[in-house]
């Protein structure tokens, strides 16, 4: 597959100095509710036809005995339908524990999985959150890969997610 990539892209992949970064800042809001559990969150990169180009992260309750936390993965219903149901969670390098309210930043480099295999093109970053006994929200941010210049895009959630910022660095 890598052999078939255009020269420009394979150049990016092999030259350390040209490695691009994709960085996500996601805010999990503080909610004043009767019963609070940290949300399950899935982040992935979507192609124009809504198929999944790359899974970035899935935060869920992976500390429960017998992997019981996987029972609620289907509540991330868009992610579940697009790719979650094809996987056996937890998956190394993809799954992580749920996060507390506050801002969280995660960065992926183009010289590592999963961005290593991402072809040049138009994509959407998708972030979906579902909270036990709470609601669900999904945010999208369009972007171009690989980035030609540093870019930043922002969108704000309304109830389950706060601000979402996508920063790309060539």
């Amino acid at each position: 597959m890598r052999i078939a990539l255009p020269v420009v892209v394979s150049g990016l992949l092999t030259t350390q100095a040209l490695a691009a970064d994709l960085s996500i800042k996601i805010e999990i809001p503080v909610l004043n509710v009767a019963e609070y559990h940290r949300p399950y969150v899935a982040m992935w990169i979507e192609r124009a036809n809504q198929s999944v180009a790359a899974n970035l992260a899935v935060w869920f309750d992976l500390k429960q005995k017998n992997n019981d936390g996987t029972k609620w993965l289907k509540d991330l219903r868009q992610w579940w339908r697009r790719s979650g149901r094809e996987l056996a969670m937890p998956v190394d390098g993809l799954s992580g524990a749920t996060r507390a309210a506050g801002e969280h930043q995660v960065t992926w480099s183009s010289d590592k999985s999963p961005l290593q295999a991402l072809a040049a093109g138009e994509y959407q970053l998708v972030v979906e959150a579902a909270r036990e006994v709470g609601g669900r929200e999904l945010l999208r941010l369009p972007f171009q890969w690989p980035p030609r210049a540093p870019t930043t895009a922002k969108v704000a959630g309304e109830h389950e997610l706060g601000g979402l910022t996508l920063s790309l660095k060539p």
């Binding site: 019981d68 609620w72 993965l73 289907k74 219903r77």
Partner: peptide, 8 residues
């Protein structure tokens, strides 16, 4: 009708 998990 749509389920995930280990003891379903």
């Amino acid at each position: 009708t749509v389920l995930s998990g280990s003891d379903v």
